[in-house]
Simulated assay, not measured.
Amino acid sequence: MSEFHWGHALLLFLALFALYSPIAALSSYLPYMEGYTPKEQLRLSLGLFRNVTVLMLLALWVGEPLLELLGISTAALSATGGIALILAAVPMMTGSGSSPPAPDGEAARGPKAPWRSIVFTPLTFPLTFGGTTFGFFVAYRADVAGWKAGIAMTVAGLAYAAVTGITLYLSGHLVRRVSASTAAVLDRVAGILLTAIAVTLIASGGTRLVDDVLNSL
């Protein structure tokens, strides 16, 4: 372990920010925010902030022993997240999961499911906080010791959680300002993006799982 300084916390936040990529995340959130009222979209954003905060605290303070206790690796979390995401993304990419436009040409605004049913999966996991993100927190925390380091890392994690909640909230504002035809195109584009992310998660997690098995032999 190295001696702690605030640069560690800053590096953690910058690494998470780059991994998250708010612009890419915003477009991936759009299909999920469509059909919800502004009040529900705010609740989704606050729910995402809460979930990311809880997962961040778990990763920072008990992440390493928790994974060892459960016998779960971050590679397995990544692969699982990819599987969950691809199940939701493929219907968007093919258009089979889209609601048909209303007769007046406006997009149908009824939510496909209660907002609470999507706030954890897929919005929190795996779109926002997956195995790689969990691993970042565990690895950075393991690199420094002491309660001061833990507090600084927690501040960085809270800043990251705030970024995710704000990004989701902004996607809700954006989706209310697009036409039905534009929304349909965005659904397809987001589906392609999400499917690519899912494949990357599965490939990355699967590769690391195989490496772990080979290293244990």
Rank of each mutant, 00 (worst) to 15 (best):
I23H: 05
E3F: 14
G35K: 02
A75Y: 03
A149W: 03
F120Q: 03
P101M: 14
I166H: 02
P114D: 00
T132K: 07
L70N: 04
Y29P: 03
A203P: 04
G130K: 03
W6K: 07
P126L: 09
I23A: 15
E68C: 09
V138T: 14
V144W: 04
H8M: 03
L186Q: 09
E3I: 12
A79K: 04
P114R: 01
G35M: 01
L48P: 15
S117W: 14
L214K: 07
A184Q: 03
W61M: 10
M33Q: 06
A184H: 08
F49P: 07
F137Y: 15
V138N: 06
V155D: 01
G206H: 11
G105V: 13
M92L: 15
A198L: 06
L55R: 07
R177S: 13
T128E: 01
P100Q: 07
S98G: 04
S21F: 10
L60W: 12
G130F: 04
L85W: 01
A159V: 14
A84R: 02
A203W: 02
F49W: 10
A76H: 04
S45M: 06
H5V: 02
N51D: 05
P31M: 01
G82H: 11
G135N: 00
L30C: 06
G165C: 04
L66M: 08
A162M: 12
